[in-house]
Simulated assay, not measured.
Amino acid sequence: MGEALYTVVSQVRTVAGPFLTLLYPLYASIEAMESITKHDNEQWLAYWIIYSFLALIEIIIQPALETVSIWYDVKLVFVGWLVLPQFKGAAVMYQKFVREQIKKYNSKHGHTAFKGKNKFMDFMHDKKEEAQEYYD
């Protein structure tokens, strides 16, 4: 009985991993890009930033992670927290860690923080208007 349960759990992990880390976020990102509001765009952009950083860290410390047998389970729980709309973990992580580090770096080096953000959003807004005019 224990071996059968292990096999089932193993199969669920095999399917849940790619679904939770890539397929659902990909779908939600496309939905966010097609929606009118920009709030969900920020959540999914934050997710991809955090997830990319996590993947990079995994590549760098792969030999050490091989010794931690529960790493994959911990990663799935963490990514679930990042992805699920009830938690908006990606936005929380971005605000508390990534954004704060960027602010510190910019103030230390005399850079203007987030200088290009408004220009990019204006560019995207103009493109959405052009697309809307095209389809009307």
Results as ranks from 00 to 15, higher is better:
Met1Leu: 10
Met1Ser: 09
Gly2Gln: 07
Glu3Arg: 12
Glu3Ile: 12
Tyr6Ile: 07
Val9Lys: 14
Ser10Arg: 01
Ser10Asp: 06
Ser10Met: 04
Val12Ala: 12
Thr14Val: 10
Val15Met: 01
Gly17Pro: 04
Gly17Val: 04
Pro18Ile: 00
Pro18Gln: 00
Pro18Cys: 00
Phe19Met: 08
Leu22Tyr: 12
Leu22Pro: 04
Tyr24Thr: 08
Tyr24Gln: 13
Leu26Lys: 01
Tyr27Cys: 05
Tyr27Leu: 08
Ala32Ile: 03
Met33Thr: 07
Met33Pro: 04
Glu34Lys: 11
Ile36Ser: 14
Ile36Trp: 12
Thr37Leu: 09
Lys38Pro: 05
His39Lys: 14
Asn41Ala: 09
Leu45Asn: 08
Tyr47Lys: 01
Trp48Gly: 02
Ile49His: 08
Ile50Leu: 02
Tyr51Thr: 00
Ala55Trp: 07
Ala55Pro: 02
Glu58Pro: 03
Ile59Lys: 09
Ile59Arg: 08
Ile60Tyr: 08
Ile61Met: 03
Ala64Gly: 01
Ala64Tyr: 11
Leu65Gly: 07
Val68Ser: 06
Val68Phe: 13
Ser69Cys: 04
Trp71Cys: 05
Trp71Ala: 05
Asp73Glu: 08
Asp73Lys: 03
Val74Gly: 00
Lys75His: 10
Val77Phe: 12
Gly80Phe: 04
Gly80Pro: 05
Trp81Glu: 02
Leu82His: 00
Leu82Glu: 00
Leu82Thr: 02
Leu82Pro: 04
Pro85Val: 06
Pro85Cys: 06
Gln86Trp: 13
Phe87Val: 11
Lys88Glu: 09
Ala90Arg: 02
Val92Thr: 11
Val92Ala: 10
Gln95Leu: 09
Phe97Gly: 11
Val98Pro: 06
Arg99Trp: 04
Glu100Asp: 10
Gln101His: 02
Ile102Trp: 04
Asn106His: 10
Ser107Ala: 14
Lys108Leu: 15
Lys108Cys: 11
His109Gln: 08
Gly110Phe: 03
Gly110Cys: 00
Gly110Val: 00
Gly110Asn: 02
His111Ile: 05
His111Gln: 14
Thr112Asp: 10
Thr112Gln: 07
Thr112Met: 06
Phe114Val: 05
Phe114Ser: 12
Lys115Gln: 14
Lys115Ala: 13
Gly116Trp: 05
Asn118Val: 11
Lys119Asp: 13
Phe120Ala: 13
Met121Ile: 15
Phe123Trp: 13
His125Cys: 02
Asp126Leu: 14
Lys127Pro: 11
Lys128Asn: 10
Lys128Ile: 04
Lys128Val: 07
Glu130Ala: 15
Glu130Met: 13
Glu130Tyr: 12
Ala131Pro: 03
Gln132Glu: 15
Gln132Val: 11
Glu133Thr: 05
Glu133His: 09
